[in-house]
């Protein structure tokens, strides 16, 4: 469906709102120095840390978010709504609040500070935890809505054929969920890559340990705006590239 004509100018306005800042960024990039700025030691360290932590965080959202999506799908009644709201809270929480919350849970003086043998805060692990915290809701939502679109018929028939529940999960359900998992993973990766507030609060900004690309950009934006713009361009390119390559809108029927 195309909708009435008056949607078009509003859509154009919306598109511009996204496009103009990107153009502004591109206009700031000093193309002659781009390569050296991006390949400077600080930039490479930050970028490498970002890609590694975001990749690990994406795997973590798969390992934890997929089971959460299943459990949520299996719940009934008001409990489900409540649990869903809690699980999805990081999606709408200001990241700095999320970072504080993580600190109060896993920091030296946090709930589990003693049990964790000191503190995971201000380590690379903290970066991954912060990224997983903010990115997991994308996976949970993806999985839950994909499961809701399934009738359960294939799973029931697989059962009559003698398959164990694990086998039904791995051979029937998960393959059918592959598009939803890909979508969830892409969104989670992109979100993890862009994580800033929770990371800064919970993990700090130690070069090579917790200073991811967004933190590096924020740090050098005053002293070296050209480097900030160059690094930003890389992040924009990676984000758009990943999403364009792998993200497909969820379809109603699975």
């Amino acid at each position: 469906m195309t909708g009435p004509r008056w949607l078009a100018p509003l859509a154009a306005l919306g598109g511009l709102l996204v496009l103009l800042p990107l153009l502004g960024l591109v206009a700031r990039v000093e193309w002659t120095d781009l390569w050296s700025l991006v390949t400077s030691q600080e930039s490479l360290t930050a970028l490498g840390l970002s890609l590694r932590t975001a990749a690990v965080a994406t795997l973590a959202t798969l390992a934890l978010g997929v089971p959460l999506g299943f459990v949520l799908h299996g719940m009934r009644g008001p409990v489900r709504g409540l649990v869903r709201a809690v699980v999805l809270a990081p999606l709408v929480l200001p990241p700095v609040v999320g970072g504080l919350a993580l600190l109060y849970a896993f920091g030296r003086r946090g709930l589990l500070g003693e049990e964790l043998g000191g503190s995971v805060a201000f380590t690379t692990l903290a970066v991954v935890i912060a990224q997983t915290f903010v990115a997991m809701p994308f996976m949970v939502v993806s999985v839950e809505s994909a499961l809701a679109a399934r009738s359960g018929r294939h799973e029931a028939i697989a059962g009559t054929l003698g398959a164990s529940r694990t086998r039904v999960l791995t051979r029937v359900t998960l393959p059918a969920l592959a598009p939803a998992l890909a979508t969830g993973a892409v969104l989670a990766f992109a979100r993890a890559l862009g994580e800033f507030g929770a990371t800064l609060t919970f993990a700090g900004s130690l070069e090579g340990v917790t200073r991811t690309a967004p933190l590096e950009i924020y740090l050098v934006r005053e002293t070296d705006p050209a480097a900030a713009a160059a690094l930003s361009l890389v992040l924009v390119a990676v984000a758009i590239g990943v999403v364009a390559l792998a993200y497909r809108p969820l379809r109603g029927a699975a």
């Binding site: 059962g159 009559t160 054929l161 398959a163 164990s164």
Partner: peptide, 10 residues
Amino acid sequence: PRDRRIGLLS
């Protein structure tokens, strides 16, 4: 169902 060995053609 997996232990019943009753096949169903739906």
